[in-house]
């Protein structure tokens, strides 16, 4: 999935989560800004399929790495919580 503009990111998230997760632009924007400031993504202006102008966001090298790390961390955490919950029950 190459560079995406923020509307399509929101749409994609909604689609993947089967409508469970709907991020409005008010939530998504600050998140994108922060990621960009952290150097995890970078943005460029481009054209959409409908030939409309839009800002496209793409993962940087650093972003890919931290994605891996964060994903790992999250899985561990989730697994841990799962374990704790199932043991405690």
């Amino acid at each position: 999935m190459g560079p995406q503009h923020s509307y399509s990111i929101a749409a994609r998230l909604q689609q993947v989560s089967e409508d469970l997760l709907y991020l409005n632009q008010g939530t998504l924007y600050p998140a994108l800004i922060r990621l960009e400031q952290q150097g995890r993504i970078k943005s460029t202006w481009g054209k959409t399929e409908g030939n409309r102008e839009a800002k496209f966001y793409a993962l940087t090298k650093k972003g890919e790495q931290s994605l891996k790390q964060e994903a790992l961390r999250w899985r561990r955490m989730a697994g841990l919580v799962e374990k704790l919950l199932s043991e405690g029950a």
Partner: peptide, 11 residues
């Protein structure tokens, strides 16, 4: 402003 305009346009 430009980004917001572009999204409104796409929508």
């Amino acid at each position: 402003q430009r980004e917001i305009d572009s999204h409104l346009r796409i929508l």
